[in-house]
Amino acid sequence: MVCSFRGYASPENYPRAPEPTFVNVAFFIIALGTLATAAVAMSLRNLIHSALLLIGSWAGIGAFYLWAGAEFVAFGQVLVYVGAVSMVVLFAVLLTRHSRDDSGFEPDSIGRAVSALIVGGTVLGVLVGAVLSTPLKSATEVPAAVQVRSLGLQLMGPHAAALLVVGVVLTVALLGAVVIASPDRPADRKEEP
């Protein structure tokens, strides 16, 4: 596998479409898989199917991180999204169902879907136009692979304060989530089906 695609040898090679190398094909497979699973998940009525498909979409994003050379972020994505957030989402889906066959409620109105599609398509058009009309140069050399050791040194050195703040934020948020979700009144408990 020749990574000729990753960074052109010289800047004058830049103004042309990248040739379809193996790496490029891998990117297209990852992108199409991720987009297709996300779109189908957003359009399904059954919420459990949507959640399971979104897990596939998150895994595809993790594969993109691997493809881009950010291995540690890919592992973080798999751990946090594919592992933790998906379980929380599935629990929330199962806890908010009336019965076993309750797969959702009446379908959303057509007008709402059409207006959402119009807005989304407009935003997509604006974004694609802006991206395509901007002359972005790819890096001429491949950046050195980020070692986990250097990441740890950066986290403990220049970013130590941010790391502490993120730890506090996570602790407070998870405690708050428990407080919000726990039944506080006996009347609430009696109502449970």
Partner: peptide, 13 residues
């Protein structure tokens, strides 16, 4: 961009 718009359409629809 495409992924963002898929999410946006889902949020709105």
């Amino acid at each position: 961009s495409a992924l963002f718009c898929v999410g946006l359409i889902g949020v709105l629809a």
